[in-house]
């Protein structure tokens, strides 16, 4: 075999011009525009609503124009009723949240950490949890009348369960491998709680808090419309008696604003406390 092997034909080298590839990401919005985007839809609704009212598509005694609602707000601000009622409702919401929330947090931690404590209390809590707290309103009125205790009782009860369940769940699902690591490095029980268990349970606790805030406003609105002589809910019910539709709508708008405010505060807290979490890291 002296024949030279036939040379393998080389593939023709064609010059491939790679086009300049632009990154696939869409152009990111300007920061100020990105911040504004969530508000565009509510703003558009307001504009349409205002136009529809002014053009007579919506009767004023069914749904007043946004400008009328604003005017009602200004009127009530001037005579001091608005500030007073918001203050009263806010105080009720906060005190109910603090009372119910702190009890729930403590019990959630306790039951999460101790099997004995869980065995004693958890079944009872689960039974009570399944009673809608608003079903207790007649009983609460019998007990407390329309005093402050009635609202405090109902809101704390409403806030209690989401915080309890999520705290309990958070503590229980802390990575047992991390707990073992902490022990093997000689952490005391207190240190283990502070450095491993509590931070591990925190994301779940925040879920509970945000959920509880929703229930807090819901319970308070219902309680105030049925059994109160002050507060935003009372203001709305009172306005209904006098057919002041603008004040009723104003009350609803205020509830929406307060709810959004509470949620924003918790989101801010979340960002501060959970900055280690991949879901909260800036890119």
């Amino acid at each position: 075999m002296t024949d030279r092997a036939e040379p393998i034909p080389r593939p023709q080298r064609t010059s491939l011009r790679v086009p300049d590839l632009k990154p696939l990401q869409p152009k990111s919005l300007q920061p100020w525009l990105a911040r504004l985007t969530p508000w565009l839809l509510p703003l558009a609704i307001l504009v349409v609503w205002q136009a529809a009212s002014r053009l007579g598509f919506i009767a004023a005694n069914v749904l007043p124009a946004p400008s009328d609602v604003l005017a009602a707000g200004w009127r009530l601000t001037l005579n001091g009723q608005l500030a007073e009622n918001i203050g009263v409702s806010f105080k009720r919401a906060i005190s109910g949240f603090l009372l119910g929330g702190s009890l729930a947090f403590a019990l959630g931690l306790f039951n999460g950490l101790s099997k004995t404590s869980e065995r004693v209390t958890d079944t009872t809590i689960q039974m009570v949890r399944n009673i809608p707290n608003l079903a207790l309103i007649p009983l609460v009125i019998l007990w407390f009348g329309i005093e402050e205790e009635a609202k405090l009782f109902l809101t704390s009860l409403g806030v209690f369960f989401p915080i309890y369940i999520n705290t309990f769940h958070g503590v229980r699902t802390v990575d047992s491998q991390l707990v073992e690591m902490g022990r093997s490095y000689g952490m005391s029980n207190l240190e283990l709680f502070r450095r491993v268990i509590l931070p591990g349970a925190l994301p779940s606790i925040f879920v509970g808090v945000r959920y509880a805030l929703g229930i807090m406003w819901l319970t308070l609105i219902v309680a105030e419309t049925i059994a109160a002589n002050s507060g935003i809910g009372y203001m709305a019910m009172n306005a209904r008696e006098f057919m002041l539709v603008d004040v009723v709508v104003l009350a609803i708008v205020i509830y929406a604003a307060l709810g959004k405010l509470a949620d924003s505060v918790v989101r801010l807290l979340e960002r501060l406390c959970l900055s280690w979490h991949p879901a909260f890291q800036k890119h």
Partner: peptide, 23 residues
């Protein structure tokens, strides 16, 4: 002991994770 998983505290910076080892 060093485990198969790193078992770092995700909520502590790298340096404080090392400090955990000082007991």
């Amino acid at each position: 002991i060093m485990f198969q998983e790193p078992r770092l505290l995700p909520w502590a910076r790298v340096l404080s994770n090392v400090e955990v080892g000082l007991g």
